[in-house]
């Protein structure tokens, strides 16, 4: 378990409504700082600038999907150690297993409950080595 509490989250998601809900949930209920990125191609620069504790990725995005972006993050020397959690509407257990096999720290299925989201993320954070 990491020594510091989870406080800085970068969320890569193209849907603005969901962006807003996640921001409200994490900031208002979870008391965390959230950086939102709408364009997956801008994600690496944003992450380098923001230095988040944890990155949340949407699975389906225009231009570049979550798994592709995830691989790029893994290959980046300054980003590769930041844990990544997927938020996905793909719900089958096989797909969830596939995500974990990629090296994701966790997966949260859509629709998620904004009431529970901060706790879910903290649980994943707490389970990290």
């Amino acid at each position: 378990m990491p020594a510091r509490p989870l406080s800085r989250i970068c969320y890569v998601e193209d849907d603005e409504d969901i962006q807003r809900i996640v921001r409200m949930s994490l900031e208002r209920l979870g008391k965390m700082t959230v950086e939102l990125v709408g364009d997956p191609f801008a994600a690496i620069d944003a992450i380098l600038a923001f230095k988040p504790d944890l990155v949340m990725l949407d699975w389906m995005m225009p231009g570049m999907d979550g798994p592709t972006l995830f691989k790029k993050l893994r290959e980046h020397p300054q980003i590769k150690d930041i844990p990544v959690v997927f938020i996905t509407a793909k719900a089958s257990s096989a797909e969830m297993d596939q995500l974990r096999a990629l090296g994701a720290a966790g997966a949260i299925s859509k629709p998620f409950s904004p009431k529970d989201l901060p706790e879910q993320l903290r649980a994943i954070w707490g389970a990290l080595p």
């Binding site: 849907d15 409504d17 969901i18 809900i21 409200m24 949930s25 389906m60 509407a89 629709p111």
Partner: peptide
């Protein structure tokens, strides 16, 4: 699956908040 869940995520999420 994706296209129906995405708006529902926003709807249910907003209401829950």
């Amino acid at each position: 699956s994706h296209e129906l869940r995405t708006p529902l995520t926003s709807i249910i999420g907003s209401l829950q908040l």
